[in-house]
Protein backbone atom coordinates (compact mmCIF):
# COMPACT_ATOMS: atom_id res chain seq x y z
CA UNK A 1 0.00 0.00 0.00
CA UNK A 2 3.04 2.26 0.31
CA UNK A 3 3.60 2.31 -3.44
CA UNK A 4 2.67 5.89 -4.30
CA UNK A 5 4.37 7.99 -1.67
CA UNK A 6 1.86 7.64 1.13
CA UNK A 7 4.65 8.22 3.62
CA UNK A 8 3.59 11.86 3.66
CA UNK A 9 -0.11 11.16 3.80
CA UNK A 10 -0.34 12.82 7.21
CA UNK A 11 0.61 16.18 5.72
CA UNK A 12 -1.99 16.02 2.99
CA UNK A 13 -4.64 14.80 5.38
CA UNK A 14 -3.83 17.62 7.79
CA UNK A 15 -4.09 20.24 5.06
CA UNK A 16 -7.36 18.89 3.71
CA UNK A 17 -9.46 20.53 6.42
CA UNK A 18 -10.32 24.25 6.22
CA UNK A 19 -10.24 24.74 10.00
CA UNK A 20 -6.76 23.26 10.16
CA UNK A 21 -5.65 25.55 7.34
CA UNK A 22 -7.07 28.50 9.30
CA UNK A 23 -5.06 27.35 12.35
CA UNK A 24 -1.90 27.40 10.21
CA UNK A 25 -2.82 30.90 8.94
CA UNK A 26 -3.09 32.18 12.49
CA UNK A 27 0.13 30.51 13.63
CA UNK A 28 1.82 32.05 10.60
CA UNK A 29 0.59 35.44 11.85
CA UNK A 30 2.07 34.75 15.31
CA UNK A 31 3.80 31.55 16.35
CA UNK A 32 3.70 30.41 19.97
CA UNK A 33 0.01 30.61 20.82
CA UNK A 34 -2.01 29.06 23.59
CA UNK A 35 -5.13 27.07 22.79
CA UNK A 36 -7.14 30.01 24.15
CA UNK A 37 -5.62 32.50 21.72
CA UNK A 38 -6.05 30.15 18.77
CA UNK A 39 -9.73 29.62 19.58
CA UNK A 40 -10.29 33.38 19.91
CA UNK A 41 -8.65 33.99 16.53
CA UNK A 42 -10.59 31.20 14.82
CA UNK A 43 -13.96 32.46 16.00
CA UNK A 44 -13.36 36.16 15.42
CA UNK A 45 -11.34 36.04 12.21
CA UNK A 46 -12.61 32.90 10.51
CA UNK A 47 -16.07 32.43 11.95
CA UNK A 48 -15.02 29.00 13.22
CA UNK A 49 -17.04 28.37 16.36
CA UNK A 50 -15.52 24.97 17.11
CA UNK A 51 -15.24 23.88 20.72
CA UNK A 52 -11.87 23.94 22.41
CA UNK A 53 -11.91 20.15 22.35
CA UNK A 54 -12.43 20.18 18.58
CA UNK A 55 -9.62 22.68 18.05
CA UNK A 56 -7.44 20.57 20.33
CA UNK A 57 -8.12 17.56 18.13
CA UNK A 58 -7.27 19.55 15.00
CA UNK A 59 -3.99 20.52 16.67
CA UNK A 60 -3.24 16.84 17.31
CA UNK A 61 -3.68 16.08 13.60
CA UNK A 62 -1.39 18.99 12.69
CA UNK A 63 1.17 17.80 15.24
CA UNK A 64 1.07 14.27 13.84
CA UNK A 65 1.89 15.79 10.44
CA UNK A 66 4.77 17.78 11.96
CA UNK A 67 3.18 21.09 10.94
CA UNK A 68 2.66 22.20 14.54
CA UNK A 69 4.79 21.57 17.59
CA UNK A 70 3.56 22.14 21.10
CA UNK A 71 5.93 23.05 23.89
CA UNK A 72 5.37 23.38 27.60
CA UNK A 73 6.88 26.43 29.17
CA UNK A 74 6.33 26.32 32.87
CA UNK A 75 2.62 25.88 33.39
CA UNK A 76 1.65 27.03 29.91
CA UNK A 77 1.50 25.17 26.62
CA UNK A 78 2.30 27.02 23.40
CA UNK A 79 1.86 25.93 19.78
CA UNK A 80 4.43 26.76 17.11
CA UNK A 81 4.19 26.52 13.33
CA UNK A 82 6.68 24.36 11.42
CA UNK A 83 6.33 24.54 7.64
CA UNK A 84 9.20 22.11 7.02
CA UNK A 85 6.88 19.22 6.08
CA UNK A 86 5.48 21.35 3.24
CA UNK A 87 8.77 20.72 1.42
CA UNK A 88 7.56 17.22 0.71
CA UNK A 89 5.03 18.85 -1.61
CA UNK A 90 7.38 21.15 -3.50
CA UNK A 91 10.14 18.54 -3.57
CA UNK A 92 7.74 16.19 -5.27
CA UNK A 93 6.12 18.76 -7.58
CA UNK A 94 8.55 21.69 -7.78
CA UNK A 95 6.91 24.96 -8.84
CA UNK A 96 8.51 26.78 -11.80
CA UNK A 97 11.11 29.38 -10.80
CA UNK A 98 9.64 32.85 -10.37
CA UNK A 99 10.38 35.20 -13.27
CA UNK A 100 11.30 38.86 -12.60
CA UNK A 101 7.93 40.08 -13.97
CA UNK A 102 6.05 37.61 -11.84
CA UNK A 103 6.72 38.36 -8.21
CA UNK A 104 5.83 35.51 -5.93
CA UNK A 105 2.57 36.15 -4.08
CA UNK A 106 2.95 37.31 -0.49
CA UNK A 107 6.54 38.31 -1.23
CA UNK A 108 8.63 39.90 1.45
CA UNK A 109 8.65 43.30 -0.27
Amino acid sequence: MAGVGDAHGNVFRALADPTRRAILDELQDRSGQTLFELCARLVTRHGVGSSRQAVSQHLEVLEAAGLVHSRREGRYKFHDLDTTPLRTITDRWPPPPATPEEEPPCGSA
Binding site: Q33, T34, F36, R52, R75, Y76
Partner: peptide, 8 residues
Amino acid sequence: EALVADGI
Protein backbone atom coordinates in the same frame (compact mmCIF):
# COMPACT_ATOMS: atom_id res chain seq x y z
CA GLU B 1 -3.72 23.97 36.21
CA ALA B 2 -5.95 22.83 33.37
CA LEU B 3 -7.10 26.37 32.59
CA VAL B 4 -3.60 27.82 32.70
CA ALA B 5 -2.14 25.05 30.50
CA ASP B 6 -4.63 25.95 27.78
CA GLY B 7 -4.01 29.67 28.27
CA ILE B 8 -7.53 30.36 29.50
